[in-house]
Nucleic acid binder design. Structure first.
Length: 614
RNA sequence: GGCCCCAUCGUCUAGCCCGGUCCAGGACGUCAGGUUCUCAUCCUGAAAACAUGGGUUCGAAUCCCAUUGGGGUCACCA
């Protein structure tokens, strides 16, 4: 764990890591962990952490997604030194990131096409890349034929192409391409085995002949992922690549490209591309072992839909569309919904809209989901850091150290403590971490966070809380203290706080609870409520605290002790609880009263008495 | 299916590299008690794992091999 002091001296180049998301949706929780580890590694080595937006899929990428991903990263506290400038605004506070990024050109790949094209041209001129004119249908057909014959499909190198030779065939192809014919550019892979030295997995060898001539530039002129990554990592000085294991199989392509490429810029003209160190991290899975993906939302939505249809055959796509329209004002064609049910599409939009319309809880997959549901960034980072890594330290009482903050991760992270095995994402444990984090920050901070969260995600609640905190701060703090042990997320907080947030004259008396605790035994409970009301009325409003109230309640309980002389605490408190909240569940009865305050408490007791008095 | 990676309680993991201190420790969850005015919180305790089979060795969770199982990847997506 402790870095050897010499290692810093030995390593001359500063560490530069990067997180390179594709802006096609929200930040995936697995991506968040990748980013966290890259960030932590750079920080632990005094290096720089970079974010680059891989928007080379013109059809699926969007600036909105890019902004969302950057915002989620910033919210998590994973701040990049290099990358797009971004301002995080949360709870009315703004924070700017990447204000002194290195000047290495745009951090959006779609704006770096000139770089890629220069290197493509160079490769072609050296007989290491060639235009190919196959249609998508043709290659698809060949692939299908190979699959039918149970053979591995590899793109066959054209006979007019020889690696490293600028053949006449290549010249002809280039002429056709320049004339405007639709084409891709393929890389002429070397016939040699490639070894990836992985810092987590060890040496991973790919035999010669396993790679085919893969595409490095698409018909629209944009580079493929493989090519853009290799060019940019070199040009941007990336020294260490850390990413999920799903990328392991791509790495030989990248290494092959690095071996073939040389720098074309003045400062480094002719220098061969360097191979960064690689570390492939285990994958984060669902509890059922499958890879955690955005499609899981569709799966859950579809299952609920199917269950509903099984129960009630009259439910049709048209009916569902209507209900979605009513709930979300969004319109979906019946055909799309039918296709969704039949698993012919996995529309996230339909799944989400369906979830809203049918009050269905979809699994949290993206950072945004956790954010909206009231998880704390520090809890998420802490939890996610433990998926595939741990500091290997003990607490003072000998237990495994597993609660820590971002500075700790930044100073203690080492690649050699990253594991090799995939992990399952256990929400129950995350919830536990989140609950602990809420307590750990202290009630003042928690209130501020709760309000900030509510302002962003539940504006009405935010207004209510802001008003309450401003007008009666003591009662608000009492409320937070009372409900925190009953909540695991910021969103949960509102559930336990509902009794205090509802108006004095609208909450509903649960009939069963009222019968049992107020009316039964000849209105025993109600008479206790009357008695409490009389005694509370005598209290000074400024002295309406848990302690003073508790004394009064205990006295009354003692006076109503049963034959065994045990105070009738349960009798009194349950009667009061129903009177004050309409239900039998609330924080301690003294706390409940104190949170409401004298005026509100008396009003509620009066309303209860008026409602049930004979 | 080809190629690649992986394998400790239900889950996250410590231990493995440098065999003995491990009839395997912690955490979450579960269960049982306790505290308690309800619900929670909190406290105590319990059940719960080295995938299987071969080696190597005086000795294997730790090293080697095979099997089985799981995962990833095979795009003009990234």
């Amino acid at each position: 764990m402790s870095t050897h002091p010499t290692s810093l001296v030995v390593s001359p180049t500063p560490v530069i890591t990067r997180f390179a998301p594709s802006p096609t949706g929200h930040l995936h929780i697995g991506g968040a962990r990748s980013a966290l580890f890259c960030w932590a590694y750079a920080k632990s080595r005094g290096g720089r952490f970079m974010v680059r937006i891989e928007d080379t899929d013109a059809a699926r990428s969007s600036d909105e997604s890019a902004r969302g991903i950057l915002d989620d990263l910033a919210w998590l506290g994973i701040e990049w030194d290099d990358g797009p400038a971004h301002t995080l605004t949360s709870g009315g506070v703004s924070k700017s990131i990447a204000t002194s990024a290195r000047d290495v050109g745009s951090y959006f790949q779609a704006r770096r096409v000139h770089f890629y094209n220069a290197y493509i041209t160079d490769l072609v001129s050296r007989g290491l890349a060639y235009p190919a004119f196959d249609t998508v249908e043709e290659t698809e057909a060949q692939r299908a034929a190979a699959a039918a014959a149970k053979k591995t499909y590899r793109y066959p190198r054209p006979s007019d192409i020889t690696r490293g030779v600028h053949t006449q065939g290549l010249k002809d192809r280039w002429a056709r391409a320049n004339a405007g014919e639709r084409h891709v550019i393929r890389f002429v892979v070397p016939h040699e085995s490639i070894i990836v030295h992985d810092r987590i997995l060890g040496d991973v060898k790919l035999a010669a002949g396993e790679l085919d001539d893969f595409v490095i530039r698409k018909p629209d002129g944009l580079p493929t992922y493989h090519f853009a990554v290799v060019i940019d990592d070199e040009l941007m000085g990336v020294t260490d690549v850390m990413r999920a294991q799903e990328h392991l199989a791509n790495t030989p392509r990248h290494v092959a490209l690095q071996h073939a490429l040389v720098r074309l810029d003045d400062a480094f003209m002719g220098h061969p591309f360097r191979t960064p160190t690689y570390a492939h991290m285990p994958i984060i899975c669902n509890m059922d072992g499958s890879k955690m993906s955005k499609r899981d939302k569709a799966k859950v939505g579809r299952k609920a839909l199917k269950d509903a249809i099984t129960k009630d055959a009259s439910i049709t796509p048209a009916l569902i569309a209507g209900k979605i329209l009513a709930a979300t004002k969004a319109t979906f064609p019946e055909a799309d919904i039918a296709a969704f049910i039949a698993a012919d599409n996995d529309s996230l939009d339909i799944a989400t809209a369906f979830g809203v319309a049918y009050s269905l809880t979809l699994p949290e997959i993206e950072v945004w989901d956790f954010r909206a549901n009231g998880y704390l960034p520090e809890a998420i980072c802490n939890f996610v850091a433990l998926l595939g890594w741990n500091p290997g330290l003990k607490t003072h009482d000998g237990k495994d150290l597993e609660k820590f903050d971002m500075p700790f991760i930044a100073s203690h992270f080492t690649v050699d403590r990253v594991g090799k095995t995939n992990s399952k994402f256990d929400r129950a444990k995350l919830l536990s971490f989140n609950a602990d984090a809420m307590v750990a920050m202290g009630y003042d901070a928690l209130l501020a966070r709760w309000i900030a969260w509510a302002n962003d995600h539940e504006p009405l609640l935010g207004k209510q809380l802001t008003h309450m905190a401003a007008t009666s701060h003591d009662r608000t703090m009492a409320l937070v203290r009372a409900i925190t042990p009953r909540a695991k997320t910021l969103r949960d907080l509102a559930k336990s706080a509902a009794f205090a947030l509802v108006a004095d004259d609208v909450y509903f008396f649960d009939p069963v609870a009222a019968e049992k605790n107020l009316i039964a035994e000849n209105y025993k409970g109600l008479s206790l409520v009357r008695e409490v009301r009389t005694r509370l009325e005598a209290l000074d409003p400024t002295n309406f605290t848990n302690d003073t109230i508790h004394v009064i309640i205990e006295q009354l309980a003692q006076q109503n002790a049963g034959a065994d002389n045990k105070p009738a605490m349960s009798l009194v408190s349950q009667a009061l609880r129903v009177a004050l909240t309409g239900t039998t569940v609330s924080p301690g009865i003294g706390e409940t009263l104190a949170v409401l305050g004298k005026a509100s408490a008396l009003a509620r007791l009066t309303r209860c008495i008026d409602t049930f008095a004979v």
